[in-house]
Amino acid sequence: MKKLTLPALIILCLFTAACSKRNCCVPPVIAPYIGADKNSVKWTAEATAEKQGTDTLLIVGSQTEERLIMRLKFTGKGTYTLQNTQAFYFTTIGGDVFTSRYNVDNTAASTLTVTNYDEATKLVSGTYSLTLKKEYPNPSSAYPETVKFANGMFHVYLPK
């Protein structure tokens, strides 16, 4: 009987340790992110999502003196075509004085594709491609006529 007690105790300890709850089995939280190749240069910003009205979602990329805002009637996964002021980009001085503003160039395709939407965590992920044309200052050679965001990716949490 003494010979069976030690192996039984070891097996009991192994089962108890194997069944304990661990953080290793919990998927990691995905950090909000937005980035793209802006005029062929890597661009990243702080990503947030905001509600506008009852059914409009704003996906915002913010740097110190730059903002990219994409606005859509969010209905879940799918591809959204952005036109006019549904996407715009602007630069500032001091965060409050506008130095340039760009809206969607309707002669080029600008899209946002929601590839993943998790209703439980409210995480929205996807890709985007934008061609924006200068609206302000016009004319000014200090700013390019167009700003192109290619290979864009984002992960944001919907507001509750």
Rank of each mutant, 00 (worst) to 15 (best):
G152C: 03
G94V: 05
T121K: 10
Y143Q: 10
A18H: 04
V97K: 15
P139S: 11
N84C: 10
F88S: 10
Y80N: 07
P32E: 04
T111S: 15
T127D: 05
Y128M: 03
E66M: 06
T75E: 14
R71M: 08
M70A: 07
H155E: 11
K134F: 06
L9D: 10
K77H: 05
T111V: 14
T81W: 03
L57H: 04
N84H: 14
A36E: 09
S129W: 05
Q52E: 09
V124Q: 01
V26F: 05
R67P: 06
E46T: 13
S100M: 07
Q86C: 06
E46M: 04
V97S: 15
K3E: 15
A109S: 15
R22M: 03
V147M: 08
T127R: 06
K2L: 12
T56M: 11
L12A: 15
C25F: 08
L58P: 04
G53E: 11
M1P: 12
I11R: 08
D118S: 05
E46Y: 10
K38Y: 01
L123Y: 07
K51D: 13
T99A: 11
N151Q: 13
Y157M: 09
C25K: 11
T79F: 00
F154P: 10
F98I: 15
M1A: 13
T115H: 02
H155F: 06
T111M: 02
L68V: 00
K122G: 07
A45N: 07
N116V: 05
A36D: 08
T146D: 06
A109R: 14
Y136P: 03
T92R: 03
T113C: 09
S140R: 04
K148S: 08
V156G: 01
G61T: 05
A49M: 06
A17P: 05
P27C: 11
S125E: 13
L123G: 05
T99M: 12
T56V: 10
D55R: 03
M70W: 06
F74W: 00
S20P: 00
E46I: 09
I93D: 12
E119H: 07
T99V: 14
K51A: 15
T44I: 14
C24V: 00
N106K: 11
K148R: 14
T146S: 09
E65Y: 09
G95V: 08
G61I: 03
Y80H: 03
K134L: 11
I59F: 01
A47E: 02
E135F: 04
P144S: 07
H155Q: 07
H155G: 05
G76H: 03
T91A: 13
A120V: 12
S129K: 13
P32F: 00
Y117F: 14
K42A: 12
W43E: 04
K160D: 09
A49L: 02
L123F: 01
T44C: 12
V104I: 14
V97A: 13
T5W: 08
H155P: 00
A142S: 13
F90L: 15
L158Q: 02
I59Y: 02
A31I: 10
T81A: 12
Q86T: 12
V124N: 01
Y89P: 03
V60P: 02
T48G: 03
N103K: 02
S62V: 11
S125Y: 02
D118H: 10
V147F: 01
G95M: 06
V124M: 03
L58A: 06
T16A: 15
Y117S: 08
T131G: 06
K133E: 08
T121G: 13
